[in-house]
């Protein structure tokens, strides 16, 4: 890495494919990706993630708006592979080339020494398979080769499009640690996915889009804080407790099939204090974990959820 931190910026990006009406893949999208953090770029299939990344990388020309890498358009970077490493969906390999051959071609195009090819092959766990033709690779091995290609120039920015596709759970865990350590070194890491749960443990920030439009943008924790948490309460005296809870302003209480009370609008501590004051015995009191996947689905479902 060249040492400097490089932020990514997407400003009012719009991309319409084709003439006339065309396909509106991205619509007035703006966000920033900060160095030293892993940012998840999320949205359902066809929501415009790949198109946005390809605009950012100078492969697709925006209809309007612009995209910047460290303040410059990608096409004006002096040494692009040392600045940005990208592994894009549907970028490919010649099946007749070996992984080593593929990497040596990319290395030549950026003036990178051949020794680095061996290094990145080892880094992604392809040292053994490196001399085999890519045509015989599994999807997971191709993902690793994509990652190796992105890492060739030891870039300050890493852009990965659906990197977890085709990886086994072990591979996903490995990728998570790997991306975390890259961000810890001060690099900018942008990872797209159509499933939040895949990257939930990896990312610090999220950018969520739907049909090419921004629906949520911020830290992962801020994504859930807007939602009302549910507190589950069990008590042998639940009827009396439900009554007194129900008297509080803007609180809802329901009873589930097991007899537990589901309370929204009050924190677990407040409920505990109320029960204590009322002399009601509690058997269970806990706030339900936020189901981020549910939040994500709600935000990106076709009907609703504009933030």
């Amino acid at each position: 890495m060249t040492g400097n931190s490089v932020a990514l910026e997407v400003r009012s990006l719009t991309k319409v494919f084709g003439r006339g009406e065309g396909v509106r893949a991205v619509s007035d999208l703006s966000f920033r990706v900060e160095p030293g953090r892993v940012t998840g770029f999320l949205g359902p299939n066809g929501s415009g993630k790949t198109t946005t990344l390809r605009c950012l990388l100078g492969l697709v020309s925006p209809t309007s708006g612009d995209t910047l890498v460290g303040g410059h358009p990608y096409r004006e970077l002096h040494d692009p592979l040392h600045t940005v490493g990208a592994a894009l969906e549907a970028s490919g390999f010649h099946p007749g080339r070996t992984a080593r051959g593929h990497l040596s071609v990319v290395a030549a195009s950026a003036g990178i020494a051949r020794a680095r090819v061996t290094e990145v092959l080892e880094l992604v766990g392809l040292a053994e398979a490196g001399n085999r033709k890519v045509g015989g690779y599994s999807l997971g091995m191709r993902q690793r080769l994509s990652l190796a290609t992105a890492l060739l120039g030891d870039p300050s920015v890493l852009i990965l499009d659906e990197p977890a596709n085709g990886l086994d759970p072990e591979g996903i865990a490995w990728l998570r640690n790997f991306l975390r350590s890259l961000a810890a070194e001060g690099r900018t890491v942008l990872v797209s996915s159509h499933v939040l749960s895949e990257v939930q443990l990896t990312v610090d920030d999220v950018v969520i889009i739907r049909k090419g439009e921004l629906v949520s943008y911020g830290s992962l924790s801020s994504l859930s804080s807007g939602m009302n948490a549910t507190v589950i309460v069990r008590s042998p005296d639940s009827i009396r407790l439900a009554e007194s809870i129900g008297q509080q302003a803007s609180v809802t209480v329901t009873t589930d099939t097991t007899g537990a009370l589901l309370v929204t609008g009050m924190s677990a501590a407040e409920i505990g204090a109320l029960a204590f004051a009322q002399n009601v015995m509690l058997h269970e009191l806990h706030a339900q974990e936020h189901d981020l996947e549910a939040v994500f689905l709600e935000l990106t479902s076709s009907e609703g959820g504009a933030a």
Binding site: L57, Y74, G92
Partner: peptide, 18 residues
């Protein structure tokens, strides 16, 4: 055409955006 067929054109233009 092989560059387009195998989508290696992406890697080509990433390395040489001009």
């Amino acid at each position: 055409t092989g560059e387009y067929r195998h989508m290696t054109i992406t890697a080509t233009f990433l390395a040489s955006p001009r």
